[in-house]
Design a protein around this nucleic acid. Structure first.
Length: 282
DNA sequence: CTGAACTAGCTGCCTAGGGC
DNA sequence: GCCCTAGGCAGCTAGTTCAG
């Protein structure tokens, strides 16, 4: 049993677990992702990044994301998931005035390659958090919360440094894949075919699907459906009274039955169950 | 990087059944 | 009666392989 289960903490701290997502995913929590070693291409929203050890990503979990890991290299990373309302509660005014979540809003979707000094401060802190997270006693619980607060403050400090506004270079191939993802982003609610995509982007259809699979590890249509399902989840969260059928049409499905099948395939639950769960949480 | 050939799996449609 | 889910099935197309 972890701290999250023992004390119903709205935080999760993971290090090197086997919980490597097999696919694009999204969640309601905020996420701190810190890459330590291995070879990883990170797909984040409509961008692709070749990560280097020491890269830090801050994100709102509703952005579709997926680390494509090269299994030939040992993959180490830290992940901290937390509920934004909980973090805001910890840093509530008038006792705190820093705007603790602004780095997640201003810098999200861009990795920050940390400078050595900041890495030396961040890594022991993450190690300590992951260690405490596995314990169950009350003292560890409080130390964990204190460490988590320290982590958020350190991130806030790093995000204010000029180097945090760094831009990532991309190769020509990655640029093409980004164009495909951007195309899907702007047209996912419409009827998209590979032919349309290839024509509009002036790419060869066969080359295009091969390049996409090579770079991302998944097929273009797999990404398209993930995007639609993600949008459906957002729409359910915004308005749980919305009917499943209406949302199916809104996100680009032509048939409710097809939407239900696909939604269940990607999320493990039917759209109706998801909608009821959101309704009961509100 | 392009294009032809092939095929596995998906899409679209229909229907039945259950819940409200 | 409406909405949703699930299953079946034919036709189509996305994805793969390979040659150039």
């Amino acid at each position: 049993m972890t701290l999250r289960e023992q004390f119903q903490l709205p935080i999760e701290a993971l290090y090197n677990t086997s919980k490597i997502p097999a696919d694009f995913h999204s969640h309601l929590d905020y996420e701190i992702y810190y890459f330590r070693s291995g070879k990883c291409t990170y797909l984040l929203g409509d961008k692709i990044y070749e990560l280097a050890p020491g890269d830090l990503i801050l994100m709102n979990g509703m952005t579709l994301h997926y680390p494509k890991v090269d299994p030939r290299f040992e993959y180490c990373r830290n992940i901290v998931h937390f509920s934004s309302s909980f973090a805001l509660e910890l840093f509530r005014p008038p006792y705190s005035t820093v705007g603790i979540l602004t780095p997640f809003e201003e810098l999200r979707n861009v990795p920050i390659p940390l400078e050595p000094g900041d890495r030396e401060r961040l890594e022991p802190l993450l190690d300590r958090l992951c260690l405490l997270y596995e314990r169950r006693d009350s003292l560890s619980h409080d130390l964990f919360l204190s460490g988590f607060s320290e982590l958020l403050l350190l991130i806030k400090e790093i995000s204010n440094k000029p180097y945090a506004k760094h831009t990532f270079p991309v190769s020509a191939k990655q640029a093409n894949v980004q164009r495909m993802i951007s195309y899907v982003e702007s047209h996912f609610t419409e009827d998209i075919t590979l032919e349309d995509l290839a024509r509009d982007l002036h790419l060869n259809k066969f080359y295009m699907v091969k390049l996409f699979k090579e770079t991302t590890g998944i097929t273009l249509f797999h990404y398209l459906y993930q995007r639609r399902i993600n949008q459906a989840k957002v729409l359910f969260a915004m308005d749980p009274e919305h009917s499943v059928t209406a949302i199916a049409y809104e996100v680009g499905f032509k048939h409710g039955s097809h939407f239900s099948k696909t939604f269940k395939k990607y999320t493990g639950v039917s759209p109706e169950s998801f909608r009821k769960r959101v309704q009961s949480n509100n």
